[in-house]
Design a protein around this nucleic acid. Structure first.
Lengths: 235, 235
DNA sequence: TAGTGGTCTAGACCACAGA
DNA sequence: CTGTGGTCTAGACCACTAA
């Protein structure tokens, strides 16, 4: 029993010891490990403490757990990367650059088909269309191209996004139950290249995000980032 | 007290109810919520149950918790997206396509500077360089361009990656303590375009990943995906 | 220094899925 | 049916930090 890890809490020590045994192949991939009760005895702690350690490792993908059949070391550890999705302003300020914002378009318009499809609405519905440019130290950072479901958020009609970005107003004013997000890539079009200060066909990083209130779509946004943008995470 | 949610366990019901109060603005952004003990009384459950609910919401970014000053509804909910990083083979098989693999290069070579820098090694060190193409239904899916630290993993020298990809062999054979991952974008070069069946300068999605055993870098890999590749997650 | 979240314990019951 | 993980409880002590 080697629980002398430097980690603070007991369940973290247990977790570190279990990780060590997995790492050193003392417990091999696919192999069953002792059950919680036995480990609690070995580690001289409550079973709940072992449970928390093993549950955390299972969440991280290192263990597979099933009732009755027990806990096994994962054969193919599906690691998970957690990405932070902050406000654009916060992201820029976090890198110690000065944040700037320019509204380019705010108008009611017929939604393109891919948007009305995504929202599950008829194709002749008017939605609020907003395009804006966020800058860092005065340089283009990201284009925000957003559609808002005005029937779900009528109060948005009386808001001006000249000073406050839709990104920020929505986060502060409109809660949502869930959303989906996709990371992709595109070749810059003429207008995108002009706005971002680069040449057409340059490869640009793109994020599409749609948020929902239960079954009602609230807004969908396409973010197109400046050349060289990367998103980092740890495993 | 409305704990009649359809969720199963008690802490999930508590969490759902707290989420509801946040969502309906019964508890407004920035506002303090009752402490765990009071909530436990209100919900007629143990404090630990409330703790698990609130801790989960804090992990998700909806609450800010501090000792002594208590729990507040987050002002800027920094949502987190969790991306699955599976084996390439598993990812392809999960979309019900047939997986294929072609080794293009396996040789000892002088590492380019960005690799020896990343590994913290001298610039004249020989590393194992592997390039391979993974296919889905016979069509190019992703180029795997990998450098392996042979001094940390000497046994890799006796492995042939003609049949089994380095991606797969490493996951099965070489555990790691941590890693970092970056998502980015590039314009296809001539060779990349040829391998992926597209034209040069097309925008391609790229993932760079480096894994470590404590302070020792094990391997770094660049994955360049086929045109149109996107990575999805939920919020 | 006092209030709050973080953790730990021993014991209990439950839910699920193999044998 | 039975073993295993999942959860819950009441009570306790600890760690941090704002007042």
């Amino acid at each position: 029993m080697a629980l002398n890890q430097s980690s603070r809490t007991n369940w973290q020590k247990v977790m570190a010891e279990v990780e060590r045994r997995i790492y050193t192949r003392e417990w091999q991939p696919g192999q069953s490990i002792p059950n919680e009760a036995d480990l609690a005895v070995e580690f001289r702690c409550a079973r709940v403490t072992v449970n928390r350690a093993l549950r955390t490792l299972a969440d991280a993908g290192l263990l597979d757990r099933r009732r009755k059949s027990g806990t096994r070391v994962a054969l193919h550890p599906v690691r998970k990367a957690t990405l932070q999705i902050p406000l654009i302003r916060k992201e820029i300020e976090a890198s110690k650059k000065s944040y700037g914002y320019n509204l380019l378009l705010q108008e009611l318009a017929l939604a393109p088909e891919f948007v009305s499809d995504r929202f599950g609405l008829a194709s002749d519905v008017l939605l609020l269309h907003i395009v804006a440019l966020h800058t860092a130290n005065g340089k283009p950072y990201v284009i925000e191209d957003r559609w808002i479901n005005v029937s779900a958020i009528p109060e948005v009609m009386s808001v001006s996004f000249a000073k406050l970005s839709a990104n920020e107003w929505l986060v502060q004013s409109i809660p949502y139950t869930h959303g989906d997000i996709a990371f992709g890539v595109l070749n810059a079009g003429k207008e995108q290249a002009r706005l971002l200060g680069t040449e057409p066909s340059k490869a640009l990083f793109e994020i599409e995000r749609t948020t929902w209130d239960h079954a009602t779509a609230l807004t969908t946004v396409q973010l197109v980032f400046h050349v060289g943008y990367r998103k980092h995470a740890s495993l």
